[in-house]
Computed example of a mutant assay.
Amino acid sequence: MNSEGVLTKMQTEIGTPIQYYLVFENEFLNINQLLNKKVSISFIGYQCLNCKLEKKIFRQGFCYDCFYKIPQAADWIMRPELSTAHLDKEDRDLDYEKKVQLQPHIVYLANSGNVKVGVTRKTQVPTRWIDQGAHEALEVVEVPNRFLAGITEVALKEHVSDKTNWRTMLKNEIKNESLVEWKEKLKSFIPEEAMEYYIDSNKETHIEFPVIQYPSTPKSLNIVKSQEYQGVLKGIKGQYLIFEDNTVFNVRSNEGIRVRITVN
């Protein structure tokens, strides 16, 4: 079986375990069905997710020019506290910024090997947690815009990590932590402006990933450098494909790369 297309982050569907899909221009693959099969990935070229031109990818699936021009790659995407749409202030495209920033956002705690704080649009729950490889998550506040979520995250990350350790996450080295206790501990550090949006409920979300074998020493695959790779697929976690020989492939960080996938 051969499939060819431009990589974008894997789409997911809630289930026990999570179902993963690679969606190409004219077809899609259910990656769960490839477990225990020999999978080949071949590099074909680049295609910017914005301009669609065959230009080298700079970051986030975009070429250099698009990355510094389009609103989808502005600084406030990675740093929500820089959002200004609530002030009617444009960064790159006010219409787009209003659409994305002026909607309910969740500040949450997640455990993907270590407890971390993060921000996501409410519409991205629980997708965001799945993409991070978190096996459990708990909502802390639900605020009406991205700026409030951003300043809350900034305040809380003084006391808890805001990063996922990808190696720990992939090795499934789970620290037994109580997210409810962490939430209680962090409550007093929530900024005053966000406190009225505190979520009293302590309902946790638990996530199960389709993994047969975790890597003992994950080695990241650079498909541009190696051009081709073949291995037996043993799991999918976060946005990573996990292979029998400890090789792991981060689909999301390879967005905008055109590949051929062959299944034997």
Rank of each mutant, 00 (worst) to 15 (best):
N2C: 11
T8N: 06
K9Y: 05
M10L: 05
Q11D: 03
G15I: 06
G15A: 09
T16G: 11
T16F: 13
P17D: 03
V23S: 02
F24R: 10
F28R: 12
L29F: 08
L34E: 12
I41E: 09
F43C: 14
F43T: 05
G45D: 11
Q47P: 14
N50H: 04
C51D: 01
K52T: 10
K55S: 04
K55A: 15
K56I: 15
K56P: 06
I57V: 07
G61F: 01
G61W: 00
Y64V: 12
D65F: 08
F67P: 03
Y68F: 05
I70A: 07
I70W: 11
A73D: 07
A74P: 11
I77V: 11
M78K: 13
M78A: 04
R79F: 12
P80H: 03
S83G: 03
T84A: 09
A85Q: 08
A85W: 12
D88F: 09
D91I: 13
R92I: 07
D93F: 10
Q103M: 03
I106S: 06
L109V: 03
V115E: 10
K116A: 09
V117Y: 08
G118M: 00
T120P: 00
R121Q: 13
T127W: 00
W129G: 00
I130K: 00
I130T: 02
Q132N: 04
Q132W: 13
G133E: 03
A137Q: 01
L138S: 06
L138W: 05
E139D: 02
E139I: 01
E142T: 03
F147Y: 10
A149P: 01
I151R: 08
T152E: 09
V154F: 00
E158K: 02
H159D: 03
K163A: 05
T164K: 07
N165L: 12
T168L: 05
L170H: 13
K171A: 11
K175E: 14
K175R: 15
N176S: 07
N176I: 10
S178M: 02
S178D: 08
V180T: 04
V180I: 05
K187M: 02
S188H: 04
E192F: 02
E192G: 09
E193M: 15
A194I: 07
Y198L: 00
Y198Q: 01
S201I: 01
E208F: 08
E208C: 04
E208K: 10
E208R: 05
F209M: 12
F209T: 06
F209K: 13
F209C: 14
P210R: 05
Y214N: 12
P215G: 08
S216M: 05
S220I: 15
E228N: 09
L233H: 05
K234I: 15
I236A: 14
K237P: 12
G238T: 02
Y240E: 11
D245K: 13
N246T: 13
V251M: 00
V251H: 00
V251Y: 01
R252D: 08
S253E: 04
T262D: 14
T262F: 06
